[in-house]
Nucleic acid binder design. Structure first.
Lengths: 190, 190
DNA sequence: GACAAAACGGAGACTGTCTCCGTATATTCG
DNA sequence: CGAATATACGGAGACAGTCTCCGTTTTGTC
């Protein structure tokens, strides 16, 4: 992504090259083996030493965050465009479904993201914040239209979406159950 | 718990003693450190070698299942008594809340249990089955009273309860958010 | 008390995480 | 271009956790 060191100084050519190789390897391996894949193995695939991997991405979450950055930003982007949708309730529902499904791109991803939704500092923080912001907008519109109870909070919805994503990849439920579970929640049980 | 080897033969005195010591240590350590605590450490606390621990409890889940056995059975017991409750909807809601809260006794427990709800073989299977059975009964009553949609399945509710338990101990939500999240779901968003 | 069956326990193989630092590569500057 | 310096590399290895194997010890039985 950035290609820029934390300081602001541009990366040295070889460093930049390795950064990209690691990210490519990570994307592939995470997709295959889930977010818990061995980091040393990713370094192997990238053709670099473990030290190099950890220098660029000090924690697992740093690496995962970099790997999902574009797809997650895209999601938030599309979400913010749902503002203009005809039916506020459907818009909200579609957004939450997209959010939950996105956590399914790597097995175990929902678990990594969860703490960020809780407010802890994490590499997922920025994108998390924008997700909550989108949710807030869509929720406000649905509430204004009298379609959703006033006491529902955006953070509740985000947590629930992420929980259902978790349930999905822990086989507590299969992927195709996701929409039904979400609808159950949005539409209510009654 | 059992005190009986898989075969059916009674355990030798020393084996029996160690079984109990391990279980006591596990209960304590799991409560302190969560369900991911080191098993070798539990063996240490129990004053036995790792080999002994693994002989009695071949997998982590075997140990956890033994540790929560009584409390979980009690829960199912109390649940089945809710059949006589005045309001079927409240009864169902209370049961699901109890189920979700129970997974909170050890951090990370919801994760261990999840696969069992999905039907995979697991030491949690038996108790899981009885939980689902209780849920089915309570759900059927609420549906018969026209309080819950007909297409809702007991397994959905159990999965959702467990997911919320997970959300709780991953700080995606705090313990005191649990009832609200559950109500949101049971009562619906509208 | 002796024999066989049952159980113990801990050394150690293995996997994954993460760091340290001697070596190599890039960039800058004379 | 050829130092000099900053930057980055990589892999050996420390550490933690899981789990097993097998020589030794304990228990139950006759």
């Amino acid at each position: 992504m950035s290609g820029i060191a934390a300081a602001g100084r541009p990366l040295r050519a070889d460093a930049r090259r390795n950064y990209d190789k690691i990210l490519a390897a990570a994307t592939e391996v995470f997709a295959e083996q889930g977010a818990h894949a061995s980091l040393d193995h990713i370094a192997d695939i990238a053709g670099v030493g473990p030290g190099t991997l950890y220098r660029h991405f000090p924690t697992r979450n740093d690496l995962i965050a970099a790997a999902i950055d574009t797809s997650w930003s895209d999601l938030a982007q599309r979400g913010s465009e749902l503002d203009d949708a005809a039916d506020p309730l459907t818009a909200l529902r579609d957004w939450l479904l997209g959010l939950a499904q996105h956590s399914g791109i790597y097995g175990g991803l929902a678990e990594c993201i969860a703490p960020a939704f809780a407010g802890e500092t994490s590499p997922f923080r920025p994108t998390c914040d924008s997700s909550v912001a989108v949710t807030e907008t869509l929720l406000a519109r649905a509430q204004a239209a009298g379609l959703i109870r006033q006491d529902v909070k955006a953070s509740d919805l985000v947590v629930i979406a992420n929980s259902l994503a978790w349930a999905t990849d822990h086989n507590g439920a299969s992927t195709r159950d996701l929409p039904r579970l979400l609808d159950l929640m949005v539409m209510g049980l009654a």
